[in-house]
Write a protein that binds this DNA or RNA. Sequence first.
DNA 1: GCATAAACGGATAGGGGGCTCCATTTGCGA
DNA 2: TCGCAAATGGAGCCCCCTATCCGTTTATGC
Lengths: 227, 227
Amino acid sequence: MPTHSSRIPRPADTSGLRVDALHNRNRILEAAREAFATLGLGVPMAAIARRAGVGMATLYRRFPTRESLITEVFADQLSACVSVVDDALADPDPWRGFRTVIEKVCAMQAADRGFTAAFLTAFPDAVDHERERARAEQGFAELTRRAKAAGRLRADFEPADLVMVLMANNGIVAESTEDTLMASRRLVAYLLRSFQVDPPDRAAPLPPAPPFGLRDMFCFSPARSAG
Amino acid sequence: MPTHSSRIPRPADTSGLRVDALHNRNRILEAAREAFATLGLGVPMAAIARRAGVGMATLYRRFPTRESLITEVFADQLSACVSVVDDALADPDPWRGFRTVIEKVCAMQAADRGFTAAFLTAFPDAVDHERERARAEQGFAELTRRAKAAGRLRADFEPADLVMVLMANNGIVAESTEDTLMASRRLVAYLLRSFQVDPPDRAAPLPPAPPFGLRDMFCFSPARSAG
DNA sequence: GCATAAACGGATAGGGGGCTCCATTTGCGA
DNA sequence: TCGCAAATGGAGCCCCCTATCCGTTTATGC
């Protein structure tokens, strides 16, 4: 029983830490957040330590595994996702709420290379993660129901399709160029058009197509291991 | 000037090879094809050599770079793509042709982990690749024109959107489970619905949603290097 | 101020994959 | 048959990343 009374939003307990340790912990988190967003979740631990201006030992003492670091780093962004859903639930127009969730979450994904994995990867620890994710999931399901009831969302859309959308969007965002954001927006527009019932804005213009040629796709999906 | 007269379909010149060398070359290609499809394009070269039953030196003498190996391995599949487009061009119904291209190519992508990268990566060598790809690209553009002229394809669809579709589909296919094929089909159905003008089969059922939960997404996008 | 334990940084073992070198074998032309 | 160049395999080197150990520094309570 380490904590005494006040509940903290973070799953990890930082109450017993010395002030310099806490300071370094925050530096690590900030460096990691930046590194994950820029270089992806596979960035070497040493690079994170260097960016944070701490030694390897410090990094590993605070976060024994890479995943524990990821868990902490993306707790904020997970909260942001929950907020997006909450905002949408507060919107009087169910379809606009639905649409906004998809657009915003996909935009977040496009802005941060590590976002998808962090939001959606199942970590054994991270109880808060689990609870917040469940909340987002339920909120989105409710949003789906309302949009259908309002006659704006097609009946064959299922809440699980959000995962499909995120995976597809991730495919576009994974290899980041300057054009990926544009491409992501266009994909989302296409999909929303397809989710919608008898779109009244059927003539609404699509975001412009990015100047992709067939040669622009690079997708070295790295092998997990050599059998 | 190594070759004398007969042109061979493969970009590489295998005419001067000793018969045992040629034999090993084919074993390597077959092993590599299997390895790429199963484990992805990042599979260790040693694993390929082992599967092929040859030494490292043999592998590296035939294919000095990983990409040269990939280029050869997927020459066949690139041809298959060209055939898909050619078949579609021969179809009297332009929309059906258009739809079939997207469905078939996405299905190929779902069936082979290395497909996307191989089809779409820009290789400095591989002249034949370049030519065949250009052919596929032009064929698809023609298909697009016809489908629009027939009043079935929306005017805001651009041929470059095929890349977007493949990237999105790749996002779904990248981390393969048993459900990815299903998910891929559903995504394609959604997108086609959106590409279509006033879909007459608007009530056509979607492929079932795969049993994804939010936790099903794993997308460790590996860092390319530490800055 | 001082003792103490927490915290620190950097060096370093350990493991894996990319690529090469070289002694040996083998197909092929004479 | 014979000689040679092509072909071969696997050991070996190098680089990169993970994770730990250890001597030193520093915050904290008395």
